[in-house]
Design a protein around this nucleic acid. Structure first.
Length: 232
DNA sequence: CCCTGATTCGC
DNA sequence: GCGAATCAGG
């Protein structure tokens, strides 16, 4: 298979739409997941949340965290004409960044002291007297779960089912053909004496077991609900 | 194990 | 340019 314009277009569309490489691959057909990823990168449309790369940008060489950072980052991804030296198969992480550049308030830095003003917590949270967390006006309030019932009372059989064969009444000798639909108040079971050897009475055995129809008379299986591209 | 995307590297 | 092989996290 080759990358025709149409296939590239579909790849791009699905990739940007959030489809996984596997989905794109078997949607296109004839290509592997790796092929899709490779092509996507070659097209320059990567930048999607990777499970392996949470985040990493240019690590400042430290020593000068000036706000003006327009360093031309000496990154040479593919321009290393080094011979087949196995000294450094993979460049390790450039430099561990202990702290993120927090936006310190301008008033909190007196002149002179070059203290970086560590602010590990970008959000200010305090604990109220009851142990709850105080929240700022912009903070989202988690949905409040519904209050549990004050008391649990034993379930009482509804009057509609009185005298009917309930689930608990089932045994090996009574017909367990369902009458009505589960969830409805009067749902119950047939309760007739069972056809020996079967779980249903004679009448319901006639409905439960039917002769195999000849091939030509069988209904075709319903078509799979497969239409356009997947929609996650 | 499965999944994911990223990267490498021989073709 | 292509993609299998490989890596590495979830």
């Amino acid at each position: 298979m080759s990358w025709t314009d149409e296939r590239i277009e579909k790849l791009t569309k699905m990739w940007e739409g959030g489809s996984t490489a596997s989905q794109i691959a078997d949607e296109l057909g004839g290509v592997s997941r790796n092929a899709v990823i490779g092509k996507a990168h070659r097209l320059g449309l990567k930048a999607r949340p990777s499970p392996v790369k949470p985040n990493e940008k240019e690590a400042a060489p430290a020593a000068a965290p000036k706000p003006a950072r327009a360093e031309p980052a000496p990154s040479a991804p593919r321009a290393a004409p080094a011979p087949k030296a196995e000294a450094a198969p993979r460049p390790a992480a450039p430099a561990p960044r202990p702290a993120a550049p927090a936006p310190a308030p301008a008033a909190a830095a007196p002149a002179g002291t070059d203290a970086p003003a560590p602010a590990p917590q970008p959000r200010i949270v305090s604990v109220g007297p009851g142990g709850f967390l105080r929240q700022g006006p912009g903070d989202q309030q988690a949905p409040i779960p519904p209050a549990p019932p004050r008391r649990l009372v034993p379930a009482k059989p509804s009057p509609e089912i009185a005298g009917k064969t309930s689930l608990l009444d089932l045994n090996d000798r009574i017909c367990r053909w369902p009458m009505g639909h589960p969830g409805e108040p009067d749902f119950h079971f047939c309760g007739e004496k069972v056809n020996p050897g079967f779980p249903y009475c004679v009448e319901h055995c006639g409905r439960a077991y039917q002769a195999q129809l000849p091939r030509g008379a069988r209904r075709a299986p319903p078509p799979l609900p497969f239409g356009g591209p997947r929609v996650r």
